[in-house]
Design a protein around this nucleic acid. Sequence first.
DNA 1: CGGTTTTGACCTGCGC
DNA 2: GCGCAGGTCAAAACCG
Length: 463
Amino acid sequence: MNFGNPLFQLVVLQAELERMNGENRRLRDMLNQVKNNYNTLQMHMMTMMHQQQQNQESGQRDGKSEEVKHQHHNNQNGHGGGGQVVPRQFMDLGLAASEAEETSQSSSEGRSGREKSRSPANNTEAGSTCGIIREDSPEKESPGWGPNKIPRLGNSSTNKPADQATEATMRKARVSVRARSEAPMITDGCQWRKYGQKMAKGNPCPRAYYRCTMAAGCPVRKQVQRCAEDRTILITTYEGTHNHPLPPAAMGMASTTSSAARMLLSGSMPSADGLMNPNFFARTLLPCSSSMATISASAPFPTVTLDLTQSPNPLQFPRPPNPFQVPFSNPTHNNILANPAALLPQIFGQALYNQSKFSGLQSSQDLEGQQHPSTMSSSINPSNHNPLADTVNALTSDPNFTAALAAAITSLIGNPGQSNNGTNNTIATTTTPANNNNNSVTNNGNNNSNGNNKVANSSFPAN
DNA sequence: CGGTTTTGACCTGCGC
DNA sequence: GCGCAGGTCAAAACCG
């Protein structure tokens, strides 16, 4: 056969052209399908938000709706720092929750003189950080935080209805990370300052309280405590939303985690007609956790728990069949994720950022022991040794990543438009904890328990 | 010397 | 109303 024959080349080209046309048609169909699904989801969301707004307006008196409107206005001005890496359509909602919280708190803040005297330093910068003008007045700085302040809303001097307090409580979302670590804290890219330590009932290990010090007035706080049953397990609980730009170390992770949070939020939406499963998030972004996703409901605040302790061997973590799963091929999930593709550059960006960091983990992982079922088809061939997939897998195996994930989720759950309904979404993710001790907080193991005056002042190493 | 940690005291919510 | 427990404050101590 004469392969140099121009006629033959033409035939080959024609055949190739036809093949590409067919491929284009197929891709076009897929695109249309995705578009349709996206539009459907959008309408669905709009409907739900509208219903929720109606419920709020009917269930509450005046003032509240004004507040909501005001918050929405602020959100559209691009307020907020911690979530600024989150795609806007969801970011607004998340910030709405956050700012609503702050606003309501500040309005009902009836603290004593102690409250007035505190944190003058913070006051000067509370609104100046990253050029964001917040509503927090100097006296309103602290309201950005305070789980035990939220319930005060209901019975405070203000005339807000009780259901509003309930709503605020539900909005007080927390994200808890459980990881095996000898280090005093897991690194999440932020700087923390310890401001208290107490003995918690039922746990011989003291609970340490940290406050974000990356920006004055940042409301984000976290609690660090060892598990009573297994003291190698470190439980870190985040609360609040950063009001400042995150450092690169935290930014990339936050970006990724925010997207993850979107998935989680999608899964937590109760009116999703069964389309949205809380566990979907874990199976999607953290596919290795597919067999461990659970739901729990107990705490007064919506809490997401990322359990990093289930991996039998941290350094030989079984690689899932699909190290990185993109839920594109499933129309249902296309509905859930407004734009999962946006996740890719974020994850990959962070993956690259962390590549050197995770190189050790990657090298120690093997492809055997693939015990996790594939929940969705992947656009990345899992059978190939995809370096990106490897990196992503390693990324999700790092408690620091998950810590940032927790922070991002915290900033997003509790969103009034997302209707957490006070349900605790517990996402157990199997990732590889790593020992990290890069935080500004030093812990030499001499932390004395605070004891609340009534508890014996015994000395327990916080770690 | 400025920032962080320690730790006793205080505040608040909740259950009884 | 009382006691308990969680959370926070703030002065003193500590540290680089």
